[in-house]
């Protein structure tokens, strides 16, 4: 069942960047791609518990700020060591300048 929840405003995230969003005490990461599309994933790296929002976004890749584990944030796919587990992604929609995430 869809559970669309407000995450942030579109301008809160810079182009090709990521911010943290805390919804009901759970951390998420909200991404804005180079093409100004928005994406959402779990907030913490699947390797160790570090916030991905501190990491670097280059194209469609987010890199963990600690161990450089990489994911495609559009699909959640892990891109090799030290990542063993993919990242959970969430559907996103943008309405009236607000980014909504479907937390299911």
């Amino acid at each position: 069942m869809a559970n669309w929840t407000r995450a942030c405003d579109v301008d809160d995230v810079e182009n090709e960047d990521v911010i943290a969003a805390v919804i009901d005490d759970v951390h998420y990461a909200i991404y804005r791609s180079p093409d100004d599309e928005y994406f959402a994933t779990d907030g913490f790296c699947t390797h160790e518990r570090f916030l991905l929002a501190d990491g670097l976004v280059m194209d469609n890749i987010i890199e963990c700020p600690k161990h450089n584990g990489r994911f495609d944030y559009t699909t959640g796919e892990g891109k090799g060591a030290p990542i063993c587990e993919d990242l959970k992604t969430y559907p996103v929609s943008v309405e009236d300048g607000v980014v909504f995430v479907d937390l299911g």
Binding site: D54, G55, L56, E63, P65
Partner: peptide
């Protein structure tokens, strides 16, 4: 925290 990570990584 890790607030310097992005710049140092670039």
């Amino acid at each position: 925290g890790a607030s310097v990570a992005k710049d140092v990584r670039v």
